[in-house]
Amino acid sequence: MHPDVTREVTIETTGLSRSYETYKKPEGLLKSIEGFWKRETIQKVAVHPTTLTVYRGQIVGLVGSNGAGKTTLLKLLSGLIYPSAGTTKVLGYDPHERRPEFLRRVSILLGQKAQLWWDLAPADSYELLAKIYEIDSAVARSRVRELADLLACTEQLHVQLRRLSLGERMKMEIIGALLHRPEVLFLDEPTIGLDIIAQTKIREFLGEYVKVERPTVILTSHYMDDISLLADRLMLISHGKIVYDGTVEAFTAKSELRQTLSLKLVHPPMQDVTLRHDFKISAGTRSVRFEMPAQWIADVLGELMALSPVYDIKIEEVEFEDVIRSFMEQDARLRAAGHSPTA
């Protein structure tokens, strides 16, 4: 747990779940006509009963493949949607009741959805937001200046939102989301679709911001750098269920720890060789690189050294991003194999 994290509970859910009804869209004209009076509905479970506790000041990285239930969980916690069952308390409030005193203390940033006004310059949008959040306009203006300086986007404050680039727009959205100094911040894909420079800038800004202001944050992202650099707690969600909840480090340790073994053979083999665990070396190959569970390294290395003297040996840890990717790929394979969240 991060040293600044107190044991004060900010978010607490018990058996929180959400399902929704959709209907099967039939293919073809006749089926579409039939669908006019007869539609087959499907119940989808987006989030299975979830019980979790988040403490004040924690930065939780919520990771999962597309359709795993990350955004739905965020929407439930922020009060955007009603739960199908279970209870939620955020800062002591039921989010879906949308009490103004609750909404003034939280913020949600949806990376795929503009929340500022498309036709207005951001400065005008912030003025309206200041009125909505009942912030003194001079205080709001100074806050905007401060955030715009940090994000290096002062020049764009007076340009109509629709005329800004995606990266500039996201910076403006971030200012809008932080204007009222929320105690709880829900960030849904804040860097999605941005180029590497914009991603880095926003990541650095958020890193600095959470260090200084210490809000409680739940962050979803497809970019593992966002999670590994910002989050001090990791939650993995699969098919609407939290399948891992712990620190990033513990997850990497708990995952089947994989390492990369690379080396060069002094005498490349004259013919194709198959080693234990089905690793293959083609005839004439000098450089060898295999990824494997850590416990196999000794066996494979022993076999290779029996084959030929070796040099330039390197054993590397697999990156956190690769571990998560492997988890998500496995999750997607399960989904494709029919383990859908359909109840």
Binding site: K75, S78, G79, L80, R98, P100, E101, L103, R104, V106, S107, I108, L110, K113, A114, Q115, L129, I132, Y133, E134
Partner: peptide
């Protein structure tokens, strides 16, 4: 289209 989200998350 879900733009209502930006109103629902604000105290108005």
């Amino acid at each position: 289209n879900g733009t209502v989200n930006s109103i629902l998350v604000r105290p108005i």
